[in-house]
């Protein structure tokens, strides 16, 4: 008798979420199996990688990941267009890091202007991120949501301390919302419940359970993502069936392994190559754990992950 491999099937399914508008609209999620397990069920959409850009020059990024953007990063619009037109980005993630009070402390109005300029210059979907300063993000993301009204962006991150205002802004301007909690599956579920109790559509939420870099707690993120996916699929928990996002680049490009110069640690090899590998390994781990959307920085790391997705789909 021929061997028939056992199949794992689940009662639940990840919500399909569409972002962007027109011909460049993209749908993520919709699968009823674990990542890439298309032999057990249906995986209708491939994971999405968004290229990260900033409202201010990325002086805080290591040199090896600044370099690919050195001619364009002075202006967020030229940076966004470069990603879209030259690097064939499928989505852009604009981080309004310049609004952080400890950084340039740009105002909500300035941030909104940047958002408007960027969203008007591209036709691929846009993810709009605050500076992760819960108070400032409330005002910045409201202005940003209005400036990109009806472009079906993803805005965030909404956290326990500020979800009400950001969720309201997402509803009013027809955007999707990132619900972020800090590496705690129960708090992640709780935040989703609180947001839906405001009347926010649970199928318009993206879960960010907080990312981390290889060597810096990646296994915690991995475990939380995997358990979220299993709660959604195996327990059919409607509060845990949203697509998951991994904010990979910002966690990877600050650890010493992506920064240290080859001259200082010759055994670690080429700095840029090492950084790209570090970002790619972290990213593929997130995808296997269950993430549907990744935010990444280095074009070569993104290229490598797109190739891996091609092979796994």
């Amino acid at each position: 008798m021929a061997f028939i491999p056992p199949k794992e099937t689940y009662p639940g399914r990840v919500y399909s979420v569409s972002i962007g508008t027109g011909q460049k609209e993209i749908t993520v999620g919709g699968e009823n199996v674990l990542s890439f397990h298309s032999f057990e069920g249906t995986v209708p959409n491939r994971p999405l990688i968004a290229h990260e850009i900033q409202d201010v020059p990325p002086t805080d990024w290591p040199e090896s990941v600044q370099k690919p953007y050195i001619d364009v990063y002075a202006n967020p619009v030229s940076w966004a267009k470069y990603c879209q037109d030259v690097l064939n980005a499928k989505a852009i993630a604009l981080r309004l890091i310049g609004t952080h009070p400890d950084r340039e402390n740009r105002s909500a109005e300035e941030a909104a202007r940047t958002v408007k300029e960027v969203v008007d210059s591209i036709d691929i979907p846009l993810i709009i991120l605050g500076s992760n300063h819960t108070e400032k993000d409330s005002s910045v993301l409201i202005a940003a949501a209005e400036a990109s009204k009806d472009r079906n962006c993803i805005i965030g991150k909404a956290q326990e301390a500020n979800y009400k205002t950001i969720a309201a802004a997402a509803v009013a301007n027809n955007h999707k919302l990132i619900a972020m909690s800090e590496l705690d599956i129960n708090l992640s579920k709780q935040l989703n419940i609180l947001i839906t109790q405001m009347g926010f559509d649970k199928e318009k939420i993206i879960i960010d359970p907080m990312c981390s870099a290889l060597g810096y707690g990646l296994e915690y993120t991995y475990s939380v993502m995997e358990r979220i996916r299993l709660a959604g699929l195996a327990q059919n928990d409607p509060t845990m069936q949203q697509p998951i996002m991994g904010d990979v680049g910002m966690y990877v490009w600050k650890v010493k392994e992506t920064i240290a110069d080859e001259k200082d640690v010759p055994l670690w090899g080429n700095t840029e190559e090492r950084g790209i590998t570090w970002e790619a390994v972290t990213a593929i781990s997130m995808l296997i754990a269950g993430a549907e959307i990744l935010i990444m920085r280095h074009p070569k790391a993104i290229e490598a992950i797109e190739k891996m997705i091609d092979e796994l789909m």
């Binding site: 129960n186 708090l187 579920k189 419940i193 109790q197 358990r227 709660a231 327990q235 509060t239």
Partner: peptide
């Protein structure tokens, strides 16, 4: 262990 715990589990 059939449902994931969250503070608001009774309201779901």
């Amino acid at each position: 262990g059939r449902t994931l715990y969250a503070h608001s589990y009774l309201e779901m």
